[in-house]
Amino acid sequence: MYYMDFLRVRRALRTYSIVLGCIVILIAITIPLSRVTTHGFTVGIGGDSSLGDARTGLALLHELGKDHSFPIDDFATAAIAFAILFATGLSTSLSRVNESALFAFVKPTSRERSTWVTFGIDAAAIFVAFLIAFVLSLVPFAEVGLLGRITFDSAVHLPATIAFGLGIGLMWYGMVQAATSTLTRGGAILGISWGVFATMRGLGSIPQGTIPDSFYWFIHAFNTINPLVYLQASFGDLHGHYGSLGVVWLVALAALAIATFRRSRMEV
């Protein structure tokens, strides 16, 4: 049922694009409408002519930005955040097909193969979601005339940044798939995954000794597969994190393999 997967991600991408597009349009409209007093950085929508040296946000942002440089991979990092959100949104795709298992499983394709086709289509959609966010993130910059300040010195790191970021998305996606590949309603598990990963990331900052050692080590062991922990790293400098990049992809692929295995054994 590849066609159904195709329809599904097309619909998801359409919704995603509309939401993202609305955000960008909102920003694009807000910038010229806003009036900013340079002293207090009070930002307000609509002109208030009583403020003497108020300028439009457009002019101000251009002024502020013109002496800075903006590395291209910062844009990629921002886009990755959205792509990861999108990836978690797709992470219950197998469980959704399971509602139609009596129809979808009696087809001339092995379950393993159809599972990997679903993964492939989802992964392609996640990449497209990344590209959409990447391109849209440039729009407000173009509006304030700062496109020329984007630097490409860091472009050599771009593939690694993308691989890391999308790897994190795929890791999260894969773990939810592994947990829900034999269920018919995976939405709750996806919701729980947010809570668990966020909580564990927070607990990870508790210093050793203040809690029982077993707890401490459990939290840290768990955090080696916690996408939110890696997300923090990906927002920082990637140098020195190539090991993490490997771990992220390894966990992602292992999770997808587990999801596939469980699904191939699933009984309806």
């Binding site: 049922m1 590849y2 159904m4 329809l7 509602e99 139609s100 129809f103 087809k107 001339p108 394709t109």
Partner: peptide, 25 residues
């Protein structure tokens, strides 16, 4: 196979199902 209970994809149209089946067979 025609199952006892409907197992079709409730969010998609009849035409979508026909197209998906055409592609599979």
């Amino acid at each position: 196979y025609v199952p006892e209970t409907s197992a079709l994809f409730s969010k998609y149209t009849v035409a979508d199902h026909i197209e998906a089946t055409r592609r599979a067979y």
